[in-house]
Amino acid sequence: MNVKTAALALSALLSTAAPAAAQNLNLRVMAPASPGGGWDQTSRAIQTVMQDEGIAKPVQVFNVPGAGGTIGLAQLYNSKGDGNLLMTMGLVMVGAIQTNSSKVDLSRVTPIARLTGEYEVIVVPASSPYKTLGDLATAWKANNALAFAGGSAGGTDHMLVGLFAKAAGVDTKKMNYVPFSGGGETLAAVLGNQVAAGVAGYGEFEAQIKAGKLRALGISAPRAQAGIPVPTMKSQGFNVDLANWRGIVAPPGISGSQKATLVAAMDKLHASKAWKDTLKTRNWTDLYMSGSKFDVFLKLEAVRTREILKDIGLVK
């Protein structure tokens, strides 16, 4: 029968993950998004590397999509004290908590580590008159209605435009931000000359930048990035530093030793060659940070996000 053969072929495929020296740490990783998205890919990459390297086994990934990850976050709260559960999260969730007025926030979860991220770029069509970020800022100040395309309202792209507006001296309440639901529509709007500029993660524009169809004016990284021939926003006098980072947290109320075990597992993951290879092929920037440094970072990021979202009028 057909169903059977395909099911068999698939289960054979699924079990190709090589067995390694298993330890007694078994983990469940929640991806608070649908399969295929950034958090899901991160979770599954963690699963593969941890199992292959024998850091933990078995590692199970499950999806709890919805509301920018806040549905998954609420579920994490229900598993208070579970030392074998992790959740992938990131800047988008920090923002969604604010914009959705979520009942749960990140103040009580147990931060484990920040793993990867991607910097944002501001691009214009190749035929655009703007050659530098300064040109764009000058034109923007003269005409607040200049259209910027990016992802949905309140997301990382929108935040970056808000930060850029502030740095350029443009009223954040008057800026003309055109949100798209993703799926490459931002790219299409810029390529089709329908907006003045577009904002997205570097990866989304990379091919077009290299092909010369788009001009990247600035990247939101603190310093120049290897292999990315785009000047930083900072180097052009705009003090903007924003990474669309992804990290890992555990449920509230786990014990100190449980937290230490999880942090150690992430440290091991980060140190492994398999993880370095994964970062390289996927073009993910290594933004590793664990333990108390990540605790502090998470708090600061929550404050900063709230401030930006207030400036652009999304949060009262």
């Binding site: 169903v3 099911a7 698939l10 289960s11 699924l14």
Partner: peptide, 11 residues
């Protein structure tokens, strides 16, 4: 149940 969980890896 078996087809979906084993075959497709759904939870």
């Amino acid at each position: 149940y078996v087809v979906f969980t084993r075959g497709l890896g759904l939870t």
